[in-house]
């Protein structure tokens, strides 16, 4: 029972990690391998302001979200000019993000070293205990709530607002956008900015859930991509379902086999999904084959 609750809380946290990627990879077709590295960058930003000034990590992350947004806009500009325009995104574009990921990691290592760091806040050590041995640790519950707000908010945004709809369309029908005199590159620029802005907030949640070190992001590359592919590329609801599913599976595996197996879960799931159900659980047609 406890494993189920932990799994759902973990799933919510995973949704926060993956939601930005579901925009970048699922909708814009930008294979941002560096997504988890940006999350860890966000986590370290929250860590600095928390340890220096005692600010709440989530508050810091919201303040820094616009900065991440701008970084995203900038990166997309470079990506568009260097790779997308020339059709080189498959090889060099991938390598580009791989390089960016590596640079972020190494810079963090040079600045912070390889030790684990964590944040302080009143609610982190708080815990609700229910009958039947069910615990609700705030360390997981707070990120879960924020993750839900973020995911559902983004879903509302992309299904109800004009810009959100344009963002959905940019993947499926760029010609139609052009006919409506909307510049697809501009939409993609802003959407990628939003994708990175979520990294700031997800980073703060990350450092609340567990201690961080510069290269821990690598372990989450498989998880986030598995979730986005499972969720059927670019659907926020699908992403949430995929995240819950992985959270539950991982929590059960950890309970029964021990935590050292948990990294294999996400990646194993990813390989299986790619091999047998590349259209995701909710299914979208003709995207993965090429």
């Amino acid at each position: 029972m406890n494993a189920l609750v932990t799994g759902i809380l973990l799933g919510g946290f995973y949704a926060a990690l993956a939601i930005g990627l579901s925009i970048a990879f699922g909708l814009l077709d930008i294979v941002n391998i560096a997504h988890p590295a940006f999350i860890i960058l966000g986590a370290f930003v929250a860590f600095i302001f928390n340890s220096q000034f005692g600010l709440d990590p989530i508050l810091v992350s919201v303040i820094f979200a616009p900065v991440f947004f701008l970084i995203g806009v900038l990166i997309y500009k470079v990506y568009y000019a260097s790779f997308e325009k020339t059709g080189a995104e498959a090889l060099r574009g991938l390598a580009f993000f791989f390089g960016v990921m590596f640079i972020i990691e190494v810079l963090l290592i040079i600045y912070f070293g390889v030790d684990f760091q964590m944040v302080q806040a009143d609610y982190i050590d708080f815990k609700l205990t229910f009958g039947g041995g069910v615990d609700l640790p705030f360390r997981m519950l707070v990120p879960f709530v924020i993750a839900m707000i973020m995911t559902l908010g983004l879903q509302y945004f992309s299904s109800k607002t004009f810009f959100g709809k344009a963002m959905q369309a940019v993947a499926q029908d760029p010609v139609a956008l052009r006919l409506m005199a909307i510049d697809p590159a501009r939409i993609k620029r802003i959407a990628f900015g939003i994708s990175l802005a979520t990294c700031s907030i997800a980073g703060a949640l990350f450092v609340i859930v567990m201690p961080i070190e510069p290269s821990i992001g690598r372990l989450y590359i498989g998880i986030v991509f598995a979730i986005v592919v499972l969720g059927g590329l670019g659907s926020q609801t699908g992403t949430l379902i995929g995240a819950m599913l992985l959270g539950l599976v991982e929590s059960l595996i950890t309970t029964f086999f021990g935590p050292s197996w948990s990294p294999a879960v996400a990646f194993g799931a990813l390989i299986l999904v790619l091999a047998f159900k590349p259209t995701g659980i909710l299914g979208r047609v003709g995207d993965t084959r090429g």
């Binding site: 294979v31 391998i33 498989g222 592919v229 996400a266 990646f267 194993g268 390989i271 590349p278 993965t288």
Partner: peptide, 12 residues
């Protein structure tokens, strides 16, 4: 599948 999936699978 498309090349990006091979890339991600190798990382996995």
């Amino acid at each position: 599948l498309r090349g990006v999936y091979f890339a991600i699978a190798t990382l996995a």
